[in-house]
Each structure stands twice: as C-alpha cells, then as structure tokens.
Nucleic acid binder design. Structure first.
Lengths: 341, 341
DNA sequence: GTGAAAGCGCTAACAG
DNA sequence: CTGTTAGCGCTTTCAC
C-alpha cells in the first residue's frame, strides 16, 4: 500500500519546531533568517534521514512555478529534433527542470491548442519551433510575461528570443562547395519558404549560384504536400524534367530521404553520378554508399544556447527586458557524395 | 502584463452562487447533486464565455492526480524509441494526459534517480524501458500502487504489466529466412543478454541455427562497452576473426549501424556479399544499397497496447489486481540484403 | 438544491 | 531567532 510521503509538517512535529523554520532551512534560507547552525543541521539531517522530498505540486501551487518546460517541435520522431530534445532534456534536468516534449506537426491549430493547454497548466517556459501562423500566439505569450525561446526559425518583426543557425551562410557554403567541385547544374529541392529557415536556405543557394554565373534550378514543395505524401511525386517529376542536373542540394533531411528513394526506384546510377548534399546530418549518411555530405547543425551548441537564454528569463519578472537572437553556424561535413565526379 | 486567469471563485462571485455549485457543475456532477437545469446551463455558459480553464496544479494538489505520465526509455533520440514516443504522445493527449519523456541510458542509477524524482512529483503512471538492475525499484512502485507498464523488456519473476514483442519468434524467423536463402555461416552480433529482449533474440537465433544443423557464430558485447565506444572494436575484431561468415544478423539498430560502418571502412564489398538483417527498422534502410532487410516492431500496436493497459490502471485503486503481459509480433521486412547472393 | 468550510502541502509576511 | 497564520485554487463533506 502507498505509504504516505512525509510532509514538512511531520518534520516540524518530530523536531518540535514550526513548519516555518523547517521550510526556511530546506529552502536554504537558514543563514538569511539567522537560524542557528545546530538547528539547521538537525533539520537537514532529519530530512535526509527520512528521505524527505517536497511535494512539488504544493510548491507549484504556492509559488506559481511548476519547474516544467515545454519543448515543442515539429515532430519529435524526426532525427534532428529528437537529438536536440535529448540534449536539452539533460541540461534541463541538471537545472532542476523537467521537460514535456510535444509535436505540433507544423500545424497552426495544433500549435495553438498545445500552447493554450500548457499555458493553463502553468509551465514555466516554452521552447518552440513555430508553425508559420502562430506569430500572434507567441506575441501573446510574451505579453503574458511567459518565457519563450524560438528554435530553428523565427518571425520577422516579432521581438522574441531565438536560436537559429545561419541558414543563408550554411546554404551558400554548401552550394559553393558543389561549385568548387565542378558541378554546374545544381538543383535545389526545398519546401515553400514561408518560414525563416527555409527562406535563408533558398537565398544562400541563389546567392552562390548567382555569384558564379550559374542558372538556378529549384523545386519548392508546398509544405502541406509533404505530409499529404504528394511531395514525393513532385520531386520525381522535378528530376524527370531537369535531365541535365549534375548535382542536387536537399534543404531538409526528409527531402534527402525522399530524393534518395526516388533515385533508388527510377535511376540508381544517379546516386553515384550526381553531386549530393543534404541539409541536416543523419547517422546513416556516413555509412551510405556514397557517404553523403551534409550541413550539420551543432546540436550541443543549440541546446546549450537555448538553456542559456531560458534560465535567466525564468528568474526575471519582466521577460521583455532584453531579447536574445542567437545565430550559430552550421558545419559542412564533406563526404563522398559532393566530390568531383 | 500577465492577466490573472479566472478562478472558480470569480465565476461564483459573478453569478452570485457558491464555489461548490460551480465546482459540481464543472465536474459534471450537476445531475447527481440535483442542481437545476437553468443554473447548470448558466454556469456552463459563463465558464465558456470567459474561457475558464481550471488550475490543474490546484486540482492535482487536491486530488493527488497530476494527469502526467512518464515515458522512460533508453535514449529518446534513438529512432525506435522516438517513433514510439511520438505515437504514445498522441494517444495520451487525446486522453487528457501529458507525457514527460526521459532517457535512462540503460543505467540503473539514472533510472532510479529519475523514477524517484517523478514519483515525488506525483506523476500518475510510468511506462518504462527498464535498465537491468531496477527490478526492486519497479517492485516498490507497484507496491506503492503506482501504475507501471514495462516496455520492450521485463523481469523474470516480477509480476508487472508489460508490452514486448515476441523476440524469440522474430529472431527465429529472421534467421530461418537467411537459411532459406542459402546462407550457411550466419553471424549474430548482439549485446550481452542480461535483458529479456536480448535473451529472446539470442535464443531465437540459436534455435533456428540448431534446427538446421548449422554452427552458431555469436558476438555478445557487454552493454557498457557499447557506450564506451569499445563496441565498435569488438565488432571489427569479430569480423576479422570470423572470415567465413556469409551472413550476419544484428540484434539492434545501433549494432547494424556499427557493423555497416566497419564494413565501409575495412571491406566495402562485404556490404553486398554478406546476407544482412537488422533488428529494428530505420527509414534509411529502404534506400540503402543494398536495401536492408529488417525486423520491424509494430510501433502503433505497441503504443496502443501500452495505453490500453495504462488507462484502466489509472482509474483503479488497486494496481495489482490483474497484470497484463502482452506480446506482439514483429514483422520481417524482406529487402535486398538478405536474398540469396 | 445550495452553500460554508475544511484542507491538500507548501511559502512567506508578520508578529513576537 | 522562531512561530503563527494566511492563503495558492480546487474538491468534497456536511449542514441547512
């Protein structure tokens, strides 16, 4: 049967002192409150002895803080987000926070629903990979003085903390790398750039292409088509029409997977003949044949930065004081697929 | 500034009735408590109008239920667990539960720490992929009448709910499939079988080998070596010593990745010459060259079953009444890598 | 039919 | 230096 956990009251009774004193000691305010060394020690020892753990629900109700953070991404089962989540989780636990993960499927309605839900559940802060149309919701969160850090993408004209990579630079460098390896007809497969990160990736590509006097070949797949499974057909058509491509740059890891799948089905030799780069790394890329060059986002850096921004916000009364917009650099991991053929 | 959320008190005051009545109505006990239709409607309408959402922390403190489930796996960034988590999350939200994910790294200490932490945090239930030495902890949880469902593996002699796949059968079938495709020297790379799922996989392999009068070739890597990175060297040595293998069956997806990595480095032709099967599927397997045969666990089934077992437990006062041990079948997805060469 | 009030476990202002 | 006490917002018993 469930043994009732010990409460602060039990300790006080046992030690014949008041709950206040116990509470102060347990919250490290013994010094501040001038509680005697001996008493302090006695309380601490006894608490340890009976393995006292505060009821966090009661604490939360009282303090208004839940020690819970929400980490909302597009899809937690996506390799990139899962890896990020794992690192963030570790850091958060270290700091005494628990993390609730959730997937918004890049859907505005689902995002709003989730945010409302958790907001009423009094979570302390949000890390959000925002879907395109939730700028207002985010704005309200900030107005309500709730810590928010945007991840992977942000909104133009919204003053909100964010951690993103320099997509334009990463994309430019990757494209330039292909060009340096003698590729001349470089395709770019992306999803429609109604999100900041996709915009940056596209413009980086275009910039490199332009600077080298080449001709762009882009396929922009509407986001909703990706989930509806129509994306694959669009990619297939693209490669059927663009016969003279000698290289291709996929703007996300799932587009790379789709692309490889199509090559595999229609024209396996393309996998070796085409220059290939994928945005976002995958454990399998280094053991693929050929090994696949990728733009790798620094997962550790990103998670660390997220927490560095989040923690101070959690303490502050006014969240809007200063906003941090951090941009980190991605790394181009050069493997076989992007080398001169 | 943060607008204070409406409380049940506000509603009561506004409507000039007592909080009790409001609470009854809001909790659907209007009928039971013989509260008039009109009043009921008035309360409901007003609650909706001002978009009242109960403070769940207060609710939790009062009822002792937090509406939070813990989903503890080995590593949330592992493809298999991430996919499972994603599905479980969806079902849980549907039922009004939030899910906290965490990774125990198959480490007993971390597992215990996490369980203690969450237990004191009064979560309502646990789904756990247990590390080898936490049988006692689990037992205590059950004694404390806390709902637990074990996932992926279980403990002999512990009466606890669980959802696992039939590892022995899956492993037997996979091995038999290799044998049917004329492979005679089939290696089995696994981690030390101190966990039920690994035991099943090993015995299934041995059984098929025995029944066909073949000779087993197994490599059992101590689990701690895997994380220390020594695993890779052990695998490498295995393949160097076992020169006459014509096929290999990897018992987990990360072992497959390690294996492929080694082939890639040492002897790329092996990738095509060897018969290969991997336990656990990966999105990349179907676009690898050759495409890789895998034992695929039915993620949807598993998550659904987990919730089917969990939900009733959440309502009950006595968790030990009946225990459900569910075994689901894995599916062998036959691709190029396992076909006769 | 409805309301007053106790109390979940904790924190902190205030009193002594 | 230490204790008393008032809530945080909610559920539920008991009284009217």
């Amino acid at each position: 049967m469930k043994k009732k956990p010990v409460s602060i009251r039990n300790i006080a009774d046992e030690l014949k002192i008041s709950v206040t004193t116990v509470s102060f000691v347990l919250n490290g305010k013994a010094k501040e409150k001038h509680i005697s060394k001996e008493l302090t020690k006695k309380v601490l020892d006894y608490a340890k002895l009976i393995n006292y753990k505060p009821n966090q629900i009661a604490q939360s109700l009282r303090t208004g803080k839940s020690k819970i953070l929400v980490f909302m991404v597009e899809d937690i089962s996506n390799n990139f987000f899962a890896k990020l989540a794992r690192i963030f989780e570790d850091i958060a636990y270290d700091k005494g926070y628990k993390v609730i993960f959730c997937s918004n499927e890049n859907d505005d309605e689902k995002s709003n629903e989730l945010i409302t839900l958790f907001n009423f559940r009094q979570v302390d802060g949000f890390v959000i990979v925002p879907s395109p149309g939730i700028k207002d919701t985010i704005e309200n969160l900030i107005k309500d003085n709730i810590p928010v850090v945007l991840l992977d993408r942000f909104f133009d004209g919204l003053d909100c903390n964010s951690v993103v990579i320099d997509n334009e630079k990463a994309s430019f460098d990757a494209t330039q790398h292909l060009i340096d390896n003698q590729f001349k007809n470089i395709g770019f497969v992306t999803i429609a750039p109604d999100q900041s990160q996709m915009e940056g990736r596209l413009s980086g590509y275009i910039k490199a292409i332009d600077e080298n006097g080449l001709k762009p070949h882009t396929l922009e797949i509407p986001y909703d088509q990706v989930y509806k499974g129509k994306g694959k057909e669009l990619v297939r058509k693209f490669f059927e029409e663009e016969k003279d491509l000698d290289a291709v740059f996929f703007a996300t890891n799932y587009l790379t997977q789709t692309g490889l799948e199509i090559f595999k089905e229609n024209n396996p030799s393309l996998i070796n003949d085409l220059g290939i780069i994928s945005f976002d790394d995958n454990d399998m890329y280094k053991i693929y044949s050929p090994t696949i060059t990728s733009v790798s986002q620094p997962l550790n850096d990103i998670s660390t930065k997220l927490m560095e921004i989040m923690l101070p916000l959690l303490k502050k009364k006014d969240v809007t004081e200063t906003t941090h917009k951090v941009m980190v650099n991605a790394e181009l991991i050069i493997r076989q697929s992007s080398l001169s053929k």
